[in-house]
């Protein structure tokens, strides 16, 4: 059922989830395989609960077993041995020990796993590690250290733009990217940059303050 973390279906049934689709696609391409096209309907018939809940999609054969990935993270080339289905997020956290990015929704809706890949923010839970190869990836650990924070990180602290802190790395990444693209944002632009991140403690107003203050400081005003 859908409380499963990963593949939301029986392995013998057609693949169903978005990520499963991506994963299969990636595997297929890597294996130079052709996408299958057959779509099989799964009827919903109560009282036995429908499983899967999502409509089925067709994919081709998968690569299986373990693959070695080379990732350029925070300016260093790192290698890990992962399954083809392993997300960039899980690889960063579980294999490379970079636990700043958080797995909160694991489906691209909360922004807690945001990293910067080739200059653009991405949700690292929505990208497979095998697909992240060749990209220049920056995680929150690559921006600053507790002793030498980036101006934005320092502004987050000064303005108390965090409480429990679990969403904070994701917001820091989104706002770092914003300031790179737009050094003089309006408050509305800051809000828009944060629209893909969710905070549950309720730190938004102070995040907006912190970003505007950091922008000002970085512009030398």
């Amino acid at each position: 059922m859908s409380m499963d973390d990963r593949d939301q279906h029986d392995p013998n049934e057609p693949d169903v989830s978005r990520r499963q689709f991506l994963r299969g696609l990636s595997g297929s391409l890597a294996a130079s395989a052709v996408l299958a096209t057959g779509v099989e309907a799964v009827p919903l018939s109560p009282p036995s609960p429908p499983e899967p809940l999502e409509p089925p999609l067709a994919v081709g054969p998968r690569i299986k077993g373990q693959v070695k990935v080379r990732l350029n993270v925070n300016g260093q080339v790192k290698t890990a041995t992962v399954e083809p289905r392993t997300t960039l997020l899980n690889t960063l956290r579980d294999d490379l020990g970079l636990t700043g990015a958080k797995r909160i929704c694991d489906r691209g809706s909360c922004g807690g796993c945001t990293v910067i890949a080739d200059g653009e923010t991405i949700y690292s839970c929505m990208m497979l590690a095998v697909d992240a190869q060749g990209k220049k990836i920056t995680t929150v650990e690559g921006l600053g250290t507790p002793e030498a924070m980036s101006p934005l990180q320092a502004a987050f602290v000064d303005h108390d733009a965090l409480m429990c802190g679990f969403c904070t790395p994701g917001f820091v990444m989104s706002c770092t990217s914003l300031l790179k693209h737009n050094p003089d944002p309006t408050e509305t632009e800051v809000k828009e940059a944060c629209a893909g991140n969710i905070c549950r403690c309720g730190t938004y107003p102070r995040i907006f303050e912190a970003v505007l203050a950091a922008a000002k400081r970085m512009r030398g005003e």
Binding site: L98, G100, E141, V157, L162
Partner: peptide, 13 residues
């Protein structure tokens, strides 16, 4: 400012 702020904003917490 909270003392665990630097560890939290840098992903080290």
């Amino acid at each position: 400012p909270r003392l665990d702020g630097p560890a939290k904003v840098t992903g080290r917490a």
